[in-house]
Design a protein around this nucleic acid. Structure first.
Lengths: 166, 166
DNA sequence: CGGTACATTCAAGATGTATTGAACGTTCCG
DNA sequence: CGGAACGTTCAATACATCTTGAATGTACCG
């Protein structure tokens, strides 16, 4: 249970809840969705303690959550003079956030995939594999994959990025 | 361990392994990646029993895996005359597959999000909420989100789809 | 029909991931 | 300095998801 969240206005509570579920099912993590959603609807910056109270999560989750969100430029830290606490507010430049998340989740895979395909291409010639017919088939498929991969990288590098950043 | 997979040629084994890891970290499921990768490098259709042996997975996983892959048009069922087994081979139209996967993973969220935003917009006027200033702020943010959402749906509906289908 | 050879389902268990919170590090202030 | 107020870390645990395989369903064949 998250008893503290009952103190939130209904609209905020439902929004936070839905964002949490969506974030989880996208593999981003429920807490990240909740924190961002709460800050997104907050008129003023919030401290880690606020997050713990409002969302019913632990100190640790709040701390790790805002750090991850900062890496994606989804939230920013606010310094308040004469107050030791860190405060956070949501960045509402949604396109950039989506792009940053995708970079972390997909971008790296694309480049490691290149490396693997290169290795396998080299290996397929040297190795004492199966019959020649099967080897040729495998080589063909790997080549086909390479072609698609190159196309995907071009798309990733240019068009989508610009569209989402607009 | 997956002892049976040692009988696969090195290139195939490594490819299958990597595809499994990638699929898992993208939230698609390790087995789906493995099955597709194996079929993708198979010169001839394979039965469920083949999948069990080659990948070291269970009957159940193989069965559920191919069904999911069929829904995405990633594999197709092959009927062999005089053989009761179902055989499967990989569809190599990669762009379409990516699109279908994304439709399942993201597409639905986009439409349920619309519904929620509509509800909240209605609720924010009726409800006995907090002060007027805060309510206005929340309303503004929700409107901003709606704008972004509309833009995202436009992108999703037209351009990306066509590019990936090319 | 009855039997066989397969595919499918789903509850139980195995595996993996997220969350907690106490211990620790750091900064600031008197 | 010493202590107070905060942020961070990470081993332990709670939670959720994936996988298994025995039970069940289905199509085919003699």
């Amino acid at each position: 249970m998250t008893p503290a969240s009952h103190e939130l206005p209904t609209v905020v509570r439902r929004f936070v809840e839905d964002a949490g579920n969506t974030a989880q099912s996208l593999g981003i993590g429920r807490v990240l969705g909740q924190i961002y959603a709460y800050l997104y609807l907050s008129p003023k910056p919030r401290s880690l303690a606020d997050l713990e109270n409002a969302l019913g999560i632990s100190k640790g989750s709040a701390s790790m959550g805002v750090r991850q969100l900062e890496q994606w430029n989804a939230v920013r830290k606010i310094w308040v003079r004469g107050d030791r606490k860190d405060y956070y507010e949501a960045n509402d430049w949604l396109g950039e956030i989506v792009r940053n998340v995708l970079r972390d989740m997909v971008g790296t895979k694309l480049s490691t995939a290149t490396a693997l395909l290169d290795e396998l291409k080299a290996e397929i010639n040297g190795g004492a594999g199966p019959g020649a017919a099967e080897r040729d088939f495998v080589a063909d498929r790997l080549q086909h994959l390479r072609d698609f991969h190159a196309k995907a990288q071009k798309v990733w590098g240019s068009r989508i990025v610009r569209m989402l950043l607009k």
